Structure formats: structure tokens, C-alpha cells
Amino acid sequence: MYGTWRKELIPDVLNLLLGVGLFISPWLLGFSNERTPSWNAWASGLVIAALALAALTAFAEWEEWIALAVGVWVTLSPWFVKFSNSATAMPVHVVAGTLVALIAAVRIWYAHGGHTQATA
């Protein structure tokens, strides 16, 4: 039981790390002087980290749907809020957002019985 419980926490821990990483990326990667991508990274990173913490406390499917939406937003935000020409901020947002959305989508799929068990 402990192994299963622990394995189920991995996606939430990954999203927590992605949220924290996105939040600190403007300082770490040197685009904190670019207002739009920095604020987007800070706000989105906080939301992702908060959702991951909530999911670590108690899984709820709504958290995953919001994480999916935020992940899609982060992925597309360089074009929506016009910082796609930033050589540093754009790839950070696209990679982090895609990973968050992918993790959330897989969690939603599993919550709806998308995984199959092999039987012999």
C-alpha cells in the first residue's frame, strides 16, 4: 500500500517542482528585467505550485483540470501576451507548460479508468 501511495505522489511532486522552477526562472535564467514574461512566470508558477500542494494533500479531479488549463496557458502564453521573441522566456514557458499539461492529462485519464491491467 505504501508503494502505491508513494507512486501516486510522483506527478504532484513533479508539478510542484515545475511550478517552483517556473517561478524562479526569471531570476535564474536572467529574464527578470522583461516585465511580461516574468510576471507570467511568477503568477503561473505560484498557481501550479499551489495546485500541486493541494493535490499532495488530497487528490481531487478539479485540481487536475485546472492544472491542465494552466499548463496549456503557460505553453501558449508567449504568443498570447507577446513574448515569443524572448530567447530564454519562451522555451521555459513552452517546456514547463507542456509538462504540466501532460502530467495533468495523464492524471485525468487515470482517474477515469484509462489504465488497463494485464491479466494472465
Rank of each mutant, 00 (worst) to 15 (best):
61 E>V: 02
23 F>L: 12
60 A>R: 15
119 T>F: 10
68 L>H: 12
50 A>L: 14
56 L>T: 01
37 P>E: 07
55 A>K: 08
102 L>F: 03
8 E>Y: 08
45 G>H: 00
96 A>K: 04
13 V>P: 13
65 W>A: 15
28 L>E: 10
51 L>Q: 00
19 G>H: 03
31 F>V: 05
105 A>W: 00
72 V>C: 04
40 N>A: 13
9 L>T: 15
63 E>M: 02
2 Y>I: 15
50 A>E: 03
17 L>G: 11
81 V>E: 10
117 Q>W: 15
29 L>G: 07
6 R>P: 05
109 W>S: 06
35 R>F: 09
26 P>T: 07
13 V>R: 11
24 I>Y: 01
15 N>V: 06
29 L>P: 15
96 A>C: 08
98 T>V: 13
19 G>C: 06
32 S>P: 04
83 F>E: 03
99 L>W: 00
74 V>F: 03
25 S>F: 01
86 S>F: 10
3 G>K: 10
115 H>Y: 11
47 V>M: 15
60 A>F: 06
35 R>E: 13
114 G>H: 01
24 I>Q: 01
64 E>N: 10
77 S>A: 14
12 D>S: 13
82 K>N: 09
31 F>L: 02
19 G>V: 05
56 L>R: 02
115 H>N: 15
4 T>W: 12
96 A>I: 09
106 V>M: 07
33 N>Q: 13
114 G>T: 04
83 F>M: 04
32 S>I: 06
8 E>K: 15
61 E>C: 03
19 G>N: 03
81 V>G: 00
34 E>I: 13
12 D>N: 15
81 V>W: 06
18 L>P: 03
76 L>F: 06
98 T>Q: 08
10 I>T: 10
33 N>Y: 08
106 V>L: 08
68 L>A: 15
34 E>H: 12
47 V>W: 05
84 S>R: 07
106 V>A: 04
80 F>T: 14
44 S>L: 00
65 W>L: 04
79 W>R: 15
114 G>E: 13
98 T>I: 00
71 G>M: 01
65 W>S: 07
37 P>Q: 04
68 L>C: 12
119 T>H: 12
6 R>D: 13
48 I>V: 13
56 L>W: 04
52 A>L: 06
58 A>S: 14
86 S>W: 08
11 P>D: 01
35 R>P: 09
4 T>M: 08
55 A>N: 13
5 W>K: 15
80 F>D: 02
8 E>Q: 14
54 A>R: 07
34 E>C: 15
101 A>V: 13
102 L>W: 05
30 G>L: 03
64 E>H: 14
57 T>D: 07
6 R>H: 09
25 S>M: 11
18 L>Y: 06
80 F>W: 11
26 P>A: 08
110 Y>N: 14
76 L>H: 02
16 L>A: 12
84 S>W: 04
105 A>M: 06
24 I>G: 00
117 Q>Y: 09
54 A>L: 10
2 Y>D: 14
14 L>D: 01
93 H>W: 05
73 W>C: 09
103 I>A: 08
38 S>Y: 01
22 L>G: 03
108 I>N: 01
55 A>Y: 00
116 T>G: 10
95 V>S: 06
